[in-house]
Amino acid sequence: MGDLLGVAVLGAGHMGADHIRRLDEVVSGARVAAVADPDVERAKAAVAGRDGVAVHTDAVAALDAPDVAAVLIASPGPAHEEALLAAFERGLPVLCEKPMVPDSTGALRIVEAEARLGRRLAQIGFMRRFDAGYLRLKSLLDGGGLGRPLMLHCVHRNVSSPAGFTSAMLINSSVSHEIDAARWLLGQELAAVTVLRPASSASAPRDLVDPQFVLFETERGALVDVEVFVNCGFGYQVRCEAVCEAGSARIGDEHAMVVTAAGAATEEVAQDYLVRFADAYDREVQTWVDATRHGEVTGPTAWDGYAASAVAEAGVRSLETGGRTAVDLAARPGLYAARPGG
Rank of each mutant, 00 (worst) to 15 (best):
L186F: 06
A132C: 00
G143C: 08
V269E: 06
A249M: 13
M151W: 11
D103P: 02
L190S: 04
L137G: 12
S104T: 01
L108H: 08
V269Y: 04
G77Q: 04
R324I: 05
M15D: 09
A256G: 15
L196H: 14
V7A: 05
F229H: 15
R183N: 10
D207E: 15
L84S: 00
A54Y: 06
F130K: 12
V35C: 11
E267T: 12
L185A: 00
A163M: 03
V224C: 14
Q237T: 13
G143S: 02
R120E: 03
A181S: 04
L117C: 00
E178S: 12
L117K: 00
A45D: 15
A181M: 09
V316M: 09
A278C: 08
A331R: 05
L92W: 00
D180S: 11
G125F: 06
M151E: 14
V214R: 05
G77W: 04
D290W: 04
R31K: 04
C154P: 02
V238K: 05
S248G: 11
D103V: 04
D207T: 05
G299Q: 00
C232R: 09
P340H: 06
L170F: 06
F126W: 13
W184A: 03
I124Q: 10
L208M: 08
T57A: 15
A326R: 12
S173I: 12
D225A: 14
T57Y: 03
D210S: 15
D279W: 09
A69T: 00
L146R: 01
E268F: 03
R197M: 03
P211M: 10
D3A: 15
V27A: 15
R183V: 01
A107K: 03
